[in-house]
Amino acid sequence: MQVSYFWIGLMVILLLLDLWVLNSVWRSDNSTGSKAGWTALVAVLPFAGLAIWAIAGPRGITKGPSSPEHSKG
């Protein structure tokens, strides 16, 4: 059975989206247990975990840059 480039591209996009979700989860203000739960959900069920996170996942970033030097544009 030959795997087409379409399916390979789709899986790469799904992997990148899941990594983005995990980054967002671990930068949120939620507890470590909640973060671990979201991580497990996304790792075990990548597509369903992504969809569930989009509806009910944690939002918000904990902290911005740590010094004024990093916040210069």
Rank of each mutant, 00 (worst) to 15 (best):
V25M: 07
A48Y: 10
A54W: 03
L17W: 01
P58S: 02
M1R: 14
A56E: 09
S24R: 15
P65D: 05
G9V: 04
F6A: 15
K72G: 04
E69F: 09
G9F: 03
V25H: 04
A54R: 06
L16R: 08
A43S: 14
M1V: 13
K63S: 05
S31P: 03
V21H: 01
I13A: 15
S4V: 08
I8D: 06
F6N: 10
A51Y: 08
M11R: 11
I61D: 01
V21N: 02
K72I: 13
R59I: 04
A51F: 09
T62A: 14
T62K: 15
D18V: 10
N23F: 07
W38A: 00
M11P: 01
L50T: 01
I52D: 00
G49Y: 02
W20M: 12
A43H: 13
A56F: 08
Y5M: 11
K35I: 00
F47E: 03
H70K: 14
Y5I: 11
A36D: 05
G33K: 12
Q2N: 13
D29R: 15
I13D: 11
G73N: 12
W20V: 07
M11W: 06
S4F: 10
L41R: 04
S31D: 14
A54D: 04
Q2I: 14
H70C: 04
S28N: 07
L41H: 01
A54K: 07
I52L: 09
S4G: 10
A40L: 15
I13G: 06
I13Y: 10
V44A: 09
F47C: 04
L45V: 04
G57E: 04
W53M: 03
A54N: 08
S67L: 11
R59C: 00
R27G: 00
S28V: 07
S66M: 14
L14R: 06
P68R: 10
Y5A: 12
S66P: 03
L15V: 11
D18A: 07
P58C: 03
I55D: 08
G60R: 04
V3W: 06
S4C: 13
R59S: 05
V12D: 13
A48H: 07
P58Q: 05
M1D: 09
W53E: 00
G64H: 00
L15F: 11
A56G: 04
I8H: 08
L45G: 03
F47L: 15
L16K: 05
I8W: 08
P46S: 06
S4K: 13
A51T: 05
M11G: 05
L45E: 00
F6V: 13
G33P: 03
M1H: 15
